[in-house]
Design a protein around this nucleic acid. Structure first.
Length: 416
RNA sequence: GUGGGUGUAGCUCAGUUGGUUAGAGCGUCAGGUUGUGGCCCUGAAGGUCGUGGGUUCGAGACCCAUCAUCCACCCCA
């Protein structure tokens, strides 16, 4: 084979686009109900938008981004996530001055150079929502509610909402200090794979899958022990609002975020129906990002969800009852005169809004009938030469087998 | 970056301890006479056995390398 897909990409074939469209319709419907408007931003941006400083996380970001230099010598990256682009647009287009609160959503492809595995590709698709301009913890709950609602509307209820507050940078700094004091003396006891995390990002230790690491962390200082009153109050309001909204959640002190601009609410929705990559969506508050990207300080909260993973779970729970519009009519014709007539009938029916197809392969009548069946056509219309002068054609209902001879306009209304 | 599994027809897979012309089901195509699908029957097309080396009288089977893919680790904005 001469050409093949780049590793980590997939072809979404015609036989599969139906479920994608179904999912997208659900997403748009939910977003409309919550009054979020769609925003469409570029899929490539200046590299600095995604990798701004020399922090450890930025190193990871850099390593896994698809980048290139364009003909103007600019360093460009295929977006690894949606939020920075939305915030960039928010600032660049002064959306904050046009309305006090901006509620937007997006759907589209993202790119990360990672090793593929279940639920992880190099080009993948996310949908997400961002609310910029409100510091009210109740809107954090709304963001979570949206993510949950999409899953519910997809027929998915096998998921868990994990919730945490990552507080503020100053709170995290205090905690980090105490955590290191606790962990450093134990450093040599940690499993090799976790040992390096101690200096790089000690919070990630809590994430470890290794039992030994978990045991060593017994009694380690937790972030919540350092919450100030405001952080605690906001977190309580989020939890209380979720409860009022009937959204079950589980507090998860181990839920962490790598970047500094994240504040307060952090959440993740996971499903056991996925593999090792079990996160369906994640999000939270990022009150410091707008300012970091050069805008006026603006509180903001949002989430992003993986569409491939959502589809994996939908299929696992057997929710694949999305129905594509069936073919209304397949027109059958053999001789040249019949095929010419069929073309005219096709045009008339299509003009009246019907979904119509016919044979272009010179196949036999039998083959055309089979094709009509395969296409799940509702009706078959015979363009028999004998019927052309009379303008009335045999029309057969393929599910009942009933057949009658009708003029074209009656066929149109019959099928309506 | 690390580890394991898998690469045989368009798809899902069989292929005995290495032994002649590589199989099945599904799908595709053509028929089953007199202008009508689904089911059924008959037939056909379709494979450099991922690729390149090696061992052997002989390799789809064994060895090495390489590529692809899946899953996990790492990472996860």
């Amino acid at each position: 084979m001469k050409y093949q897909r780049i590793k980590g990409t997939i072809d979404i074939l015609p036989s599969e686009t139906g479920k994608w469209i179904y999912l997208e319709e659900i997403i748009r419907n939910v977003m409309a109900r919550f009054n979020y408007k769609e925003i469409r931003v570029p899929i490539f941006e200046p590299i600095e938008l995604f990798a701004r400083d020399a922090s450890e996380s930025t190193y990871v970001v850099n390593k896994e981004m698809y980048t290139f230099t364009d003909m103007g010598g600019r360093s460009v990256a295929l977006r690894p996530e949606g939020t920075p682009s939305v915030v960039r647009a928010f600032i660049e287009e002064s959306l904050g001055n046009k309305a006090p609160l901006t509620k937007v959503f997006y759907i589209g492809p993202m790119f990360r150079h990672e090793k593929p595995q279940k639920g992880r590709q190099r080009q993948f698709h996310q949908f997400g929502a961002e609310a910029l301009g409100s510091a009210d913890p109740r809107i954090d709950a709304e963001i979570i509610a949206i993510s949950v609602q999409v899953l519910k509307d997809c027929g998915i209820d096998q998921f868990e909402v994990a919730l945490n507050s990552v507080a503020t940078p100053s709170v995290r700094a205090k905690h980090r200090e105490k955590l290191l004091e606790f962990v450093r003396p134990l450093a040599s006891q940690f499993p090799e794979v976790d040992r390096e995390k101690i200096d790089r990002n000690p919070l990630r230790l809590f994430d470890s899958k290794l039992e030994l690491t978990r045991q060593l962390l017994q009694g380690a200082p937790l972030l919540e022990q350092f919450y100030d009153d405001e952080v605690r109050r906001d977190f309580d309001i989020v939890k209380e609002t979720l409860t009022r909204l009937g959204i079950p959640y589980a507090s998860d002190p181990r839920l962490v975020r790598g970047l500094d601009y994240y504040t307060r609410t952090a959440f993740e929705i996971r499903s056991s129906l996925l593999g090792a990559q079990d996160s369906l969506s994640g999000g939270g508050r990022y009150d410091l990002l707008v300012e970091e990207l050069g805008g006026d300080p603006t509180p903001a909260v949002g989430f992003a969800a993986g569409m491939e993973r959502t589809l994996i779970v939908m299929e696992a729970v057997g929710k694949s009852d999305y129905s594509e519009k069936p073919l209304d009519i397949f027109i059958i014709a053999e001789s040249a005169a019949e095929r010419t007539q069929a073309l005219l009938l096709t045009k008339q029916l299509r003009d009246s809004g019907k979904t119509v197809d016919l044979d272009y392969l010179g196949r036999s009548q039998k083959a055309q009938m089979k094709e009509a069946s395969r296409q799940n056509a509702r009706f078959v219309l015979f363009a028999f030469a004998d019927d052309i002068p009379g303008g009335r054609f045999q029309c057969k209902n393929l599910s009942t087998g009933e057949q009658q001879k009708l003029p074209i306009d009656e066929i149109t209304s019959l099928i309506a």
